[in-house]
Design a protein around this nucleic acid. Structure first.
Lengths: 202, 202
DNA sequence: CATAACTGAAACACCACTGCCTCATTTCGT
DNA sequence: ACGAAATGAGGCAGTGGTGTTTCAGTTATG
Protein backbone atom coordinates (compact mmCIF):
# COMPACT_ATOMS: atom_id res chain seq x y z
CA UNK A 1 0.00 0.00 0.00
CA UNK A 2 2.79 2.41 0.81
CA UNK A 3 4.91 1.70 -2.27
CA UNK A 4 5.14 3.85 -5.37
CA UNK A 5 4.09 2.44 -8.68
CA UNK A 6 6.88 3.47 -11.04
CA UNK A 7 4.72 3.00 -14.11
CA UNK A 8 2.95 6.24 -13.30
CA UNK A 9 5.10 8.69 -11.41
CA UNK A 10 3.15 10.94 -9.04
CA UNK A 11 4.17 14.54 -9.29
CA UNK A 12 5.04 16.44 -6.12
CA UNK A 13 2.37 18.83 -7.24
CA UNK A 14 -0.37 16.31 -6.94
CA UNK A 15 0.81 15.13 -3.58
CA UNK A 16 0.65 18.64 -2.22
CA UNK A 17 -2.90 18.93 -3.48
CA UNK A 18 -3.83 15.69 -1.78
CA UNK A 19 -2.43 16.97 1.49
CA UNK A 20 -4.20 20.30 1.17
CA UNK A 21 -7.48 18.57 0.44
CA UNK A 22 -7.19 16.30 3.46
CA UNK A 23 -6.38 19.28 5.63
CA UNK A 24 -9.24 21.35 4.27
CA UNK A 25 -11.61 18.44 4.58
CA UNK A 26 -10.74 18.08 8.22
CA UNK A 27 -11.34 21.77 8.86
CA UNK A 28 -14.61 22.01 6.97
CA UNK A 29 -16.08 18.70 8.10
CA UNK A 30 -15.36 19.56 11.70
CA UNK A 31 -18.02 22.25 11.44
CA UNK A 32 -20.46 20.39 9.20
CA UNK A 33 -20.08 16.68 8.73
CA UNK A 34 -22.26 16.87 5.62
CA UNK A 35 -20.39 19.67 3.92
CA UNK A 36 -20.16 19.37 0.14
CA UNK A 37 -16.98 18.57 -1.72
CA UNK A 38 -17.18 22.01 -3.26
CA UNK A 39 -16.87 23.68 0.12
CA UNK A 40 -13.88 21.48 0.85
CA UNK A 41 -12.34 22.37 -2.49
CA UNK A 42 -12.84 26.05 -1.80
CA UNK A 43 -11.24 25.76 1.61
CA UNK A 44 -8.29 24.00 -0.02
CA UNK A 45 -8.01 26.72 -2.64
CA UNK A 46 -8.55 24.16 -5.38
CA UNK A 47 -11.20 23.40 -7.95
CA UNK A 48 -13.83 20.84 -7.20
CA UNK A 49 -12.64 18.76 -10.15
CA UNK A 50 -9.25 18.39 -8.55
CA UNK A 51 -10.78 16.87 -5.46
CA UNK A 52 -12.44 14.31 -7.66
CA UNK A 53 -9.13 13.62 -9.37
CA UNK A 54 -7.26 12.93 -6.13
CA UNK A 55 -10.11 11.00 -4.54
CA UNK A 56 -12.34 8.80 -6.64
CA UNK A 57 -15.37 9.46 -4.48
CA UNK A 58 -16.49 11.15 -1.32
CA UNK A 59 -16.20 7.85 0.50
CA UNK A 60 -12.62 7.48 -0.67
CA UNK A 61 -11.80 10.87 0.83
CA UNK A 62 -13.35 9.94 4.14
CA UNK A 63 -11.48 6.65 4.16
CA UNK A 64 -8.22 8.43 3.51
CA UNK A 65 -8.98 10.79 6.36
CA UNK A 66 -9.66 7.91 8.72
CA UNK A 67 -6.57 6.04 7.63
CA UNK A 68 -4.40 9.11 8.14
CA UNK A 69 -5.71 9.54 11.64
CA UNK A 70 -5.30 5.87 12.43
CA UNK A 71 -1.64 6.08 11.52
CA UNK A 72 -1.17 9.07 13.80
CA UNK A 73 -2.90 7.23 16.61
CA UNK A 74 -0.46 4.36 16.27
CA UNK A 75 2.42 6.79 16.23
CA UNK A 76 1.05 8.40 19.37
CA UNK A 77 0.73 5.07 21.14
CA UNK A 78 4.33 4.29 20.31
CA UNK A 79 5.54 7.74 21.27
CA UNK A 80 3.83 7.47 24.63
CA UNK A 81 5.64 4.17 25.25
CA UNK A 82 2.38 2.54 26.19
CA UNK A 83 4.03 -0.85 26.39
CA UNK A 84 7.01 -0.01 28.53
CA UNK A 85 6.70 3.25 30.43
CA UNK A 86 5.03 3.39 33.85
CA UNK A 87 1.34 3.29 32.93
CA UNK A 88 0.38 6.52 34.67
CA UNK A 89 3.13 8.36 32.84
CA UNK A 90 2.12 6.73 29.57
CA UNK A 91 -1.49 7.73 30.09
CA UNK A 92 -0.49 11.31 30.68
CA UNK A 93 1.75 11.44 27.67
CA UNK A 94 -0.77 9.72 25.43
CA UNK A 95 -3.43 12.17 26.48
CA UNK A 96 -1.23 15.08 25.51
CA UNK A 97 -0.58 13.57 22.12
CA UNK A 98 -4.17 12.67 21.36
CA UNK A 99 -5.16 16.14 22.43
CA UNK A 100 -2.99 17.62 19.76
CA UNK A 101 -4.51 15.22 17.27
CA UNK A 102 -7.99 16.30 18.24
CA UNK A 103 -7.07 19.91 17.60
CA UNK A 104 -6.35 19.15 13.99
CA UNK A 105 -8.63 16.16 13.54
CA UNK A 106 -11.81 17.23 15.20
CA UNK A 107 -13.86 15.52 12.57
CA UNK A 108 -11.92 12.43 11.66
CA UNK A 109 -11.70 11.55 15.33
CA UNK A 110 -15.36 10.71 15.28
CA UNK A 111 -14.92 8.36 12.36
CA UNK A 112 -15.18 4.91 13.79
CA UNK A 113 -12.99 3.67 10.96
CA UNK A 114 -10.08 5.60 12.44
CA UNK A 115 -9.98 3.35 15.49
CA UNK A 116 -8.45 0.27 13.92
CA UNK A 117 -7.91 -2.98 15.79
CA UNK A 118 -4.29 -2.05 16.27
CA UNK A 119 -5.19 1.23 17.96
CA UNK A 120 -7.70 -0.64 20.04
CA UNK A 121 -5.11 -3.14 21.19
CA UNK A 122 -2.75 -0.37 22.23
CA UNK A 123 -5.37 1.27 24.39
CA UNK A 124 -6.45 -2.00 25.92
CA UNK A 125 -2.90 -2.80 26.86
CA UNK A 126 -2.50 0.54 28.56
CA UNK A 127 -5.58 0.08 30.67
CA UNK A 128 -4.60 -3.47 31.58
CA UNK A 129 -1.30 -2.14 32.86
CA UNK A 130 -3.04 0.67 34.73
CA UNK A 131 -5.13 -1.90 36.52
CA UNK A 132 -2.16 -4.11 37.32
CA UNK A 133 -0.48 -1.24 39.09
CA UNK A 134 -3.66 -0.42 40.97
CA UNK A 135 -4.24 2.97 39.37
CA UNK A 136 -7.73 1.88 38.41
CA UNK A 137 -9.99 -0.97 39.45
CA UNK A 138 -12.17 -1.40 36.36
CA UNK A 139 -11.34 -4.68 34.67
CA UNK A 140 -13.04 -4.53 31.29
CA UNK A 141 -10.61 -2.88 28.86
CA UNK A 142 -13.40 -2.08 26.41
CA UNK A 143 -15.24 -0.21 29.11
CA UNK A 144 -12.11 1.72 30.06
CA UNK A 145 -11.54 2.66 26.47
CA UNK A 146 -15.04 3.97 26.00
CA UNK A 147 -15.00 6.01 29.16
CA UNK A 148 -11.62 7.47 28.34
CA UNK A 149 -12.56 8.43 24.79
CA UNK A 150 -15.90 9.87 25.86
CA UNK A 151 -14.30 12.03 28.53
CA UNK A 152 -11.57 13.01 26.12
CA UNK A 153 -14.20 14.39 23.83
CA UNK A 154 -15.89 16.33 26.60
CA UNK A 155 -12.72 17.83 27.95
CA UNK A 156 -11.59 18.77 24.51
CA UNK A 157 -14.40 21.12 23.66
CA UNK A 158 -14.64 22.64 27.07
CA UNK A 159 -14.78 26.44 26.96
CA UNK A 160 -11.43 27.96 27.80
CA UNK A 161 -12.95 30.13 30.52
CA UNK A 162 -14.38 27.18 32.38
CA UNK A 163 -13.81 27.38 36.11
CA UNK A 164 -13.01 23.67 36.03
CA UNK A 165 -9.77 24.39 34.23
CA UNK A 166 -8.58 26.89 36.78
CA UNK A 167 -7.23 24.16 39.09
CA UNK A 168 -3.70 24.11 37.78
CA UNK A 169 -2.70 27.74 37.75
CA UNK A 170 0.07 27.19 35.24
CA UNK A 171 -1.81 29.18 32.66
CA UNK A 172 -1.18 26.50 30.10
CA UNK A 173 -4.65 25.58 28.94
CA UNK A 174 -3.67 22.35 27.25
CA UNK A 175 -1.85 21.07 30.29
CA UNK A 176 -4.80 21.96 32.48
CA UNK A 177 -7.07 19.96 30.21
CA UNK A 178 -4.75 16.99 30.19
CA UNK A 179 -4.61 17.01 33.96
CA UNK A 180 -8.35 17.27 34.20
CA UNK A 181 -8.87 14.40 31.82
CA UNK A 182 -6.43 12.09 33.54
CA UNK A 183 -7.88 12.87 36.94
CA UNK A 184 -11.46 12.44 35.76
CA UNK A 185 -10.81 9.25 33.85
CA UNK A 186 -8.95 7.61 36.69
CA UNK A 187 -11.71 8.58 39.09
CA UNK A 188 -14.35 7.23 36.74
CA UNK A 189 -12.55 3.92 36.43
CA UNK A 190 -12.35 3.44 40.14
CA UNK A 191 -8.90 4.77 40.85
CA UNK A 192 -8.11 6.18 44.25
CA UNK A 193 -7.69 9.92 44.29
CA UNK A 194 -4.33 9.48 45.99
CA UNK A 195 -2.85 7.79 42.97
CA UNK A 196 -4.36 10.49 40.81
CA UNK A 197 -2.93 13.46 42.63
CA UNK A 198 0.40 11.70 42.94
CA UNK A 199 0.86 12.17 39.24
CA UNK A 200 0.38 15.90 39.44
CA UNK A 201 3.93 16.17 40.69
CA UNK A 202 5.28 15.02 37.35
CA UNK B 1 -48.76 27.07 23.21
CA UNK B 2 -51.01 24.38 24.65
CA UNK B 3 -54.29 26.13 23.80
CA UNK B 4 -56.59 25.18 20.94
CA UNK B 5 -57.48 27.71 18.32
CA UNK B 6 -61.23 27.33 17.89
CA UNK B 7 -61.20 29.04 14.52
CA UNK B 8 -59.82 25.86 13.00
CA UNK B 9 -60.81 22.75 14.83
CA UNK B 10 -58.17 20.00 14.68
CA UNK B 11 -59.65 16.63 14.04
CA UNK B 12 -58.68 13.73 16.28
CA UNK B 13 -57.67 12.06 13.06
CA UNK B 14 -54.92 14.53 12.36
CA UNK B 15 -53.61 14.39 15.87
CA UNK B 16 -53.21 10.64 15.64
CA UNK B 17 -51.26 11.08 12.41
CA UNK B 18 -48.96 13.58 14.10
CA UNK B 19 -48.25 11.13 16.88
CA UNK B 20 -47.60 8.28 14.46
CA UNK B 21 -45.22 10.42 12.46
CA UNK B 22 -43.25 11.44 15.53
CA UNK B 23 -43.03 7.83 16.61
CA UNK B 24 -41.94 6.63 13.19
CA UNK B 25 -39.45 9.46 12.89
CA UNK B 26 -37.84 8.43 16.15
CA UNK B 27 -37.57 4.82 15.00
CA UNK B 28 -36.23 5.55 11.55
CA UNK B 29 -33.88 8.37 12.49
CA UNK B 30 -32.37 6.26 15.24
CA UNK B 31 -30.90 4.05 12.53
CA UNK B 32 -30.08 6.76 10.03
CA UNK B 33 -30.08 10.36 11.13
CA UNK B 34 -30.27 11.49 7.51
CA UNK B 35 -33.19 9.32 6.52
CA UNK B 36 -35.62 10.93 4.07
CA UNK B 37 -39.10 12.03 4.97
CA UNK B 38 -40.42 9.41 2.62
CA UNK B 39 -38.89 6.62 4.69
CA UNK B 40 -40.43 8.14 7.78
CA UNK B 41 -43.79 8.37 6.07
CA UNK B 42 -43.58 4.73 5.04
CA UNK B 43 -42.71 3.66 8.56
CA UNK B 44 -45.70 5.60 9.80
CA UNK B 45 -47.96 3.99 7.22
CA UNK B 46 -48.79 7.41 5.80
CA UNK B 47 -48.17 9.25 2.58
CA UNK B 48 -45.27 11.63 2.32
CA UNK B 49 -47.68 14.47 1.63
CA UNK B 50 -49.30 13.94 5.01
CA UNK B 51 -45.99 14.39 6.76
CA UNK B 52 -45.63 17.71 5.00
CA UNK B 53 -49.14 18.67 6.09
CA UNK B 54 -48.51 18.00 9.77
CA UNK B 55 -45.01 19.46 9.75
CA UNK B 56 -44.21 22.41 7.53
CA UNK B 57 -40.62 21.30 7.00
CA UNK B 58 -38.10 18.72 8.00
CA UNK B 59 -36.71 21.14 10.53
CA UNK B 60 -40.14 21.59 12.03
CA UNK B 61 -40.42 17.85 12.53
CA UNK B 62 -37.05 17.69 14.23
CA UNK B 63 -37.99 20.60 16.45
CA UNK B 64 -41.18 18.86 17.45
CA UNK B 65 -39.18 15.76 18.27
CA UNK B 66 -36.81 17.76 20.43
CA UNK B 67 -39.62 19.59 22.16
CA UNK B 68 -41.38 16.33 22.96
CA UNK B 69 -38.26 14.96 24.57
CA UNK B 70 -37.61 18.18 26.43
CA UNK B 71 -41.03 17.90 28.03
CA UNK B 72 -40.28 14.34 29.14
CA UNK B 73 -36.97 15.44 30.55
CA UNK B 74 -38.72 18.02 32.69
CA UNK B 75 -41.21 15.40 33.80
CA UNK B 76 -38.34 13.13 34.75
CA UNK B 77 -36.59 15.83 36.73
CA UNK B 78 -39.78 16.44 38.66
CA UNK B 79 -40.45 12.76 39.15
CA UNK B 80 -36.96 12.25 40.54
CA UNK B 81 -37.59 15.05 43.06
CA UNK B 82 -34.34 16.68 42.12
CA UNK B 83 -35.12 19.69 44.25
CA UNK B 84 -36.13 18.00 47.46
CA UNK B 85 -35.00 14.39 47.70
CA UNK B 86 -31.56 13.48 49.04
CA UNK B 87 -29.33 14.21 46.04
CA UNK B 88 -27.81 10.74 45.78
CA UNK B 89 -31.26 9.23 45.72
CA UNK B 90 -32.43 11.77 43.18
CA UNK B 91 -29.44 11.03 40.98
CA UNK B 92 -30.19 7.35 41.07
CA UNK B 93 -33.85 7.84 40.30
CA UNK B 94 -33.18 10.35 37.56
CA UNK B 95 -30.72 7.99 35.92
CA UNK B 96 -33.31 5.25 35.80
CA UNK B 97 -35.82 7.57 34.20
CA UNK B 98 -33.45 9.00 31.62
CA UNK B 99 -32.38 5.49 30.77
CA UNK B 100 -35.90 4.62 29.79
CA UNK B 101 -36.08 7.78 27.74
CA UNK B 102 -32.93 6.81 25.90
CA UNK B 103 -34.46 3.50 24.96
CA UNK B 104 -37.42 5.11 23.27
CA UNK B 105 -35.69 8.28 22.11
CA UNK B 106 -32.39 7.04 20.83
CA UNK B 107 -32.37 9.72 18.16
CA UNK B 108 -33.92 12.77 19.79
CA UNK B 109 -31.58 12.35 22.72
CA UNK B 110 -28.76 13.54 20.55
CA UNK B 111 -30.59 16.70 19.54
CA UNK B 112 -29.05 19.56 21.42
CA UNK B 113 -32.33 21.39 21.15
CA UNK B 114 -33.88 18.87 23.51
CA UNK B 115 -31.83 20.18 26.40
CA UNK B 116 -33.66 23.39 27.06
CA UNK B 117 -32.54 25.94 29.66
CA UNK B 118 -35.11 24.56 32.06
CA UNK B 119 -33.70 21.03 31.79
CA UNK B 120 -30.26 22.48 32.19
CA UNK B 121 -31.22 24.28 35.36
CA UNK B 122 -32.66 21.12 36.85
CA UNK B 123 -29.46 19.21 36.25
CA UNK B 124 -27.31 22.02 37.56
CA UNK B 125 -29.34 22.17 40.74
CA UNK B 126 -28.90 18.45 41.27
CA UNK B 127 -25.15 18.64 40.93
CA UNK B 128 -24.95 21.67 43.19
CA UNK B 129 -26.79 19.70 45.85
CA UNK B 130 -24.55 16.69 45.29
CA UNK B 131 -21.54 18.87 45.94
CA UNK B 132 -23.07 20.44 49.04
CA UNK B 133 -23.50 17.03 50.58
CA UNK B 134 -19.95 16.06 49.66
CA UNK B 135 -20.88 13.34 47.21
CA UNK B 136 -18.74 15.01 44.60
CA UNK B 137 -16.05 17.68 44.66
CA UNK B 138 -16.32 19.16 41.17
CA UNK B 139 -17.69 22.66 41.37
CA UNK B 140 -18.57 23.62 37.84
CA UNK B 141 -22.15 22.46 37.20
CA UNK B 142 -21.68 22.66 33.44
CA UNK B 143 -18.76 20.29 33.68
CA UNK B 144 -20.71 17.89 35.86
CA UNK B 145 -23.56 17.92 33.39
CA UNK B 146 -21.33 17.14 30.45
CA UNK B 147 -19.53 14.31 32.18
CA UNK B 148 -22.77 12.81 33.37
CA UNK B 149 -24.44 12.94 29.97
CA UNK B 150 -21.37 11.60 28.19
CA UNK B 151 -21.07 8.66 30.55
CA UNK B 152 -24.79 8.09 30.35
CA UNK B 153 -24.42 7.66 26.65
CA UNK B 154 -21.55 5.21 27.00
CA UNK B 155 -23.20 3.09 29.63
CA UNK B 156 -26.40 3.01 27.65
CA UNK B 157 -25.08 1.28 24.58
CA UNK B 158 -22.83 -1.06 26.42
CA UNK B 159 -23.18 -4.64 25.19
CA UNK B 160 -25.36 -6.66 27.53
CA UNK B 161 -22.69 -9.31 27.94
CA UNK B 162 -20.07 -6.85 29.14
CA UNK B 163 -18.14 -8.12 32.12
CA UNK B 164 -18.42 -4.65 33.59
CA UNK B 165 -22.11 -5.17 34.20
CA UNK B 166 -21.63 -8.38 36.11
CA UNK B 167 -20.89 -6.57 39.37
CA UNK B 168 -24.41 -6.51 40.75
CA UNK B 169 -25.59 -10.04 40.32
CA UNK B 170 -29.24 -9.07 40.49
CA UNK B 171 -29.72 -10.13 36.92
CA UNK B 172 -31.57 -6.92 36.15
CA UNK B 173 -29.57 -5.38 33.35
CA UNK B 174 -31.03 -1.91 33.63
CA UNK B 175 -30.37 -1.72 37.34
CA UNK B 176 -26.82 -2.87 36.79
CA UNK B 177 -26.31 -0.12 34.25
CA UNK B 178 -27.80 2.51 36.51
CA UNK B 179 -25.50 1.42 39.32
CA UNK B 180 -22.51 1.49 37.03
CA UNK B 181 -23.34 4.94 35.76
CA UNK B 182 -23.87 6.45 39.19
CA UNK B 183 -20.68 4.91 40.47
CA UNK B 184 -18.67 6.00 37.45
CA UNK B 185 -20.06 9.53 37.35
CA UNK B 186 -19.47 10.13 41.04
CA UNK B 187 -15.94 8.84 40.72
CA UNK B 188 -15.30 11.03 37.70
CA UNK B 189 -16.53 14.10 39.53
CA UNK B 190 -14.25 13.52 42.45
CA UNK B 191 -16.56 11.72 44.81
CA UNK B 192 -15.12 9.33 47.39
CA UNK B 193 -15.82 5.72 46.68
CA UNK B 194 -17.25 5.37 50.15
CA UNK B 195 -20.15 7.65 49.38
CA UNK B 196 -20.64 5.81 46.15
CA UNK B 197 -20.89 2.34 47.56
CA UNK B 198 -23.02 3.59 50.40
CA UNK B 199 -25.80 4.09 47.90
CA UNK B 200 -25.68 0.50 46.76
CA UNK B 201 -27.56 -0.39 49.90
CA UNK B 202 -30.65 1.46 48.68
C1' DC C 1 -76.69 13.70 7.12
C1' DA C 2 -74.16 17.36 5.60
C1' DT C 3 -70.11 19.84 5.94
C1' DA C 4 -65.56 20.43 6.80
C1' DA C 5 -61.37 18.24 7.61
C1' DC C 6 -58.26 14.79 6.46
C1' DT C 7 -55.90 11.53 3.42
C1' DG C 8 -53.51 9.10 -0.71
C1' DA C 9 -51.78 9.41 -5.12
C1' DA C 10 -49.49 11.63 -8.48
C1' DA C 11 -47.42 15.23 -10.65
C1' DC C 12 -44.39 19.32 -10.70
C1' DA C 13 -40.62 22.71 -9.98
C1' DC C 14 -36.64 23.32 -7.53
C1' DC C 15 -32.33 22.68 -5.54
C1' DA C 16 -27.91 20.61 -3.96
C1' DC C 17 -24.58 17.27 -4.65
C1' DT C 18 -21.98 13.86 -7.11
C1' DG C 19 -19.34 12.18 -10.76
C1' DC C 20 -17.64 12.66 -15.40
C1' DC C 21 -16.01 15.04 -19.29
C1' DT C 22 -13.41 18.45 -22.28
C1' DC C 23 -10.16 21.93 -23.35
C1' DA C 24 -7.13 25.71 -22.61
C1' DT C 25 -3.49 26.87 -19.33
C1' DT C 26 -0.07 26.30 -15.86
C1' DT C 27 3.43 23.80 -13.51
C1' DC C 28 6.66 20.23 -12.68
C1' DG C 29 10.57 17.05 -13.84
C1' DT C 30 14.42 16.13 -16.62
C1' DA D 1 13.22 24.14 -23.07
C1' DC D 2 10.55 20.24 -23.91
C1' DG D 3 6.96 16.89 -22.86
C1' DA D 4 4.16 14.99 -19.46
C1' DA D 5 1.27 15.78 -15.76
C1' DA D 6 -1.70 18.54 -13.09
C1' DT D 7 -4.99 22.16 -12.76
C1' DG D 8 -9.10 25.58 -13.48
C1' DA D 9 -13.16 26.55 -15.59
C1' DG D 10 -17.21 25.17 -17.28
C1' DG D 11 -20.71 22.24 -18.81
C1' DC D 12 -23.73 18.07 -18.53
C1' DA D 13 -26.27 14.02 -16.87
C1' DG D 14 -28.02 11.57 -13.09
C1' DT D 15 -29.67 11.14 -8.44
C1' DG D 16 -32.26 12.11 -4.46
C1' DG D 17 -34.45 14.97 -1.42
C1' DT D 18 -37.78 18.91 -0.33
C1' DG D 19 -41.83 21.46 -0.64
C1' DT D 20 -46.20 22.49 -3.20
C1' DT D 21 -50.31 21.62 -5.70
C1' DT D 22 -54.38 19.28 -7.41
C1' DC D 23 -58.05 16.14 -7.14
C1' DA D 24 -60.75 12.30 -5.99
C1' DG D 25 -62.02 9.63 -2.12
C1' DT D 26 -62.50 8.84 2.94
C1' DT D 27 -63.52 9.94 7.70
C1' DA D 28 -64.70 12.55 11.70
C1' DT D 29 -68.00 15.55 13.95
C1' DG D 30 -71.83 18.68 14.99
Amino acid sequence: MGGNTPSRRIRADAERSTARILEAAETVLAEDANASLERIADAAGLARATVHRRFASRTALLDALAEQLSRRYLLGLAEARVETAPPLIALHRLTEIVFDLKLSHRFAVQLSAAITPAVLDGLDLLFARLRDTGAITAVDPAWCRRVYLALLHEVHDLPADSTTLASSATGDETEAKVDLLVRTALGALGGSHDATTALSLT
